[in-house]
């Protein structure tokens, strides 16, 4: 049972027994891990408020070769207090952690995805929340995990696309089709503006993502495309997305 220390974001917590919690953490070193925090629900627990969802913590745990790890000690690094007092920000942040939880497997390290999540939580905490941020997060998360839709070439015939005409995205093919291939396969119509946004969103430096804008139509197109693409890849609904949509 080696003692491990890492920084992590709390993705979710589930009650266990009378006073314990199963905590799902996302760490840059180990990826998604699950551990038991004994007595975490007691008012005088040594874990304090550090094991709330969305907390950024430093954690010491006894690593178990199989099953759940045992959390030993936690220190709070950031609580993102401004996220927790505004409903749109809270719903958006919960969607981000829920998405990461759904897209990742346990013990699969991905420091890029961790940094992306942490950066976005900081942005939501600091500034005014814009829904475009969620779209940028979605496409970048899909990209670092290798699930991103193909935009450069037709996914069937591999012909380079010029994006001057009507574009069709086919969910089963995982990308854009040329007009010839689209005749047989069909799919969702996508404007050039939306495609350019998605291509830019992947490449642009994180500190410049505030420059990316979408029109109302493009925002709807991009949202629909990414949501369909995510659902197709993870084969399940994302619970917090429904709540976000109801606001």
């Amino acid at each position: 049972m080696p003692l491990q220390e890492t920084q992590a974001l709390v993705l979710r917590t589930d009650n266990l027994g009378e006073a314990d919690k199963i905590v799902t953490l996302f760490s840059p070193q180990t990826g998604k891990i699950k551990g038991v925090a004994n007595g975490a629900r007691r008012p005088k627990s040594r874990f304090g408020s550090s094991l709330e969802v969305l907390s950024y913590i430093r954690v010491v745990y006894f690593a178990q070769p199989k099953g759940l790890h045992r959390l030993n000690q936690t220190d709070l690094v950031d609580y993102f207090p401004k996220i927790r007092v505004e409903l749109p920000k809270l719903a958006a942040a919960l969607y981000l952690v829920d998405l990461v939880n759904s897209l990742t497997e346990q013990e699969d390290s991905n420091p890029d995805l961790f940094n992306l999540l942490l950066y976005n939580l900081k942005i939501i905490n600091q500034g005014n929340f814009e829904p475009v941020l969620l779209r940028i997060f979605e496409i970048r998360a899909l990209t670092v995990l290798g699930f991103a839709p193909q935009f450069e070439k037709c996914t069937i015939c591999k012909k380079r696309l010029d994006f001057l005409q009507k574009n069709v995205y086919n969910i089963l093919c995982g990308g854009i089709l040329c007009l010839e291939c689209a005749k047989d396969k069909g799919g969702i119509s996508l404007s050039c503006g939306s495609i350019n946004f998605l291509k830019q969103a992947v490449k642009i430096d994180l500190d410049k993502i505030g420059r990316l804008k979408l029109s109302a139509n493009q925002a709807q197109e991009v949202k629909q495309l990414l949501h369909q693409h995510i659902l197709y890849n993870i084969k399940q609904e994302i619970n917090s997305y429904r709540f976000l949509e109801k606001l």
């Binding site: 979710r12 969802v53 719903a91 919960l94 829920d98 619970n239 917090s240 429904r242 709540f243």
Partner: peptide, 10 residues
């Protein structure tokens, strides 16, 4: 209580 992560909505 509302729990977006568990699909418990309004």
């Amino acid at each position: 209580t509302l729990s977006p992560l568990d699909n418990i909505g309004p």
